[in-house]
Design a protein around this nucleic acid. Structure first.
Length: 291
DNA sequence: CATGCGTGGGG
DNA sequence: TCCCCAAGCAT
């Protein structure tokens, strides 16, 4: 069963160290797994857990969410960040309900056609929910492979063809093993082979890791671009949307104006929110979450 | 293909 | 304090 040099130790490690996350339990529905994957995009597990629990309690099936206004999804999203994901998840629920008989599609290409579902998420749902054989290549896996195989501290900033090819070449042949392998490598990256201070002493493949065997050379290249936030449109958008989320009713323009001094930037951010469908400008001049 | 898109916790 | 980063996607 050791289709690649890492699978046996990594799978064994996963058996004894995997976190007991609710969307990994045997009774987790494909919908609940899709919800978890959208929420987990760029968002840590600890912050997703309570949001996922509340979401699944309120909308246990796609149809439950599809019959709500999209603004309710945005409100429920609360402060998870990147609220367009809430809109897309709502759009997923509508598409699944109206075009797929209320069931999360199993086919990778069909999953890919859903709003907010890209290459990673489609593979993750196909693999984790339906046991199919797909390469899982997220930020965790990219980092593990960069170190173990390529011998560098960090993967490239943007995903390359070479990384995709490498991930596919390592995929165990049996679908059930491949699915297990995918989640196991992810977990290794999340818990042991972390970005800042990897716990190589706890790593099941440390003795095979090209980066460690090379003496853990420091990242050599251009400074990795940090995300700025303070003073950006993103911060303004966040503040504007927070006003609407926290209000049970539509708000007058003045309630939005007070959250940011720079008039030009504030208007630009508000226009963008409207354009994104996150904010609904009412005929009476007030603003609300979309209906 | 580089960039924009939230938020909060930890080093 | 700052800075980095966290299961990406769409354009």
């Amino acid at each position: 069963m050791s289709d690649n040099p890492y699978s046996t130790p990594v799978l064994a490690w996963y058996e004894s160290h995997a976190r007991d996350l609710p969307w990994r339990r045997p009774d987790a529905s494909p919908w609940s797994i899709l919800v978890s994957e959208i929420m987990l995009q760029q968002t840590p597990v600890v912050r997703v857990l309570p949001a996922w629990n509340a979401w699944m309690e309120r909308w246990p099936t796609p149809a439950d969410l599809a019959r709500e206004p999209s603004g309710e999804a945005v409100r429920m999203w609360n402060r998870l960040g990147y609220p367009r994901r809430a809109l897309r998840l709502h759009a997923c629920a509508v598409a699944i309900t109206e075009e797929h008989g209320g069931r999360v599609p199993e086919d990778h290409a069909t999953l890919l056609s859903l709003p907010g579902v890209g290459s990673y998420t489609a593979a993750a749902v196909a693999s984790f929910a339906f046991g199919q054989r797909h390469a899982i290549l997220d930020t965790n896996v990219r980092r593990v492979l960069a170190r173990a195989e390529t011998g560098v501290q960090y993967p490239p900033k943007t995903q390359t063809k070479a990384e995709t090819a490498l991930a596919e070449s390592l995929l165990p042949s049996a679908p059930s093993v491949a699915a297990r392998w995918g989640v196991a490598v992810m977990e290794l990256g999340a818990l042991v082979c972390t970005a800042r201070t990897p716990a190589c002493a706890d790593c099941p493949i440390a003795h095979q890791c090209a980066w460690r065997l090379a003496g853990k050379p420091a990242y050599d290249g251009p400074p990795r671009r940090g995300q700025t936030y303070a003073g950006t449109d993103r911060q303004v958008r966040g503040r504007l949307l927070a006003v609407l989320r926290d209000s049970a009713h539509p708000v007058p323009k003045g309630a939005l104006d007070v959250v940011w001094d720079d008039h030009v930037q504030r208007e630009r951010a508000l226009d963008a929110l409207v354009s994104d469908g996150l904010v609904d400008p009412l005929d009476d001049g007030r603003y609300a979450l979309p209906g």
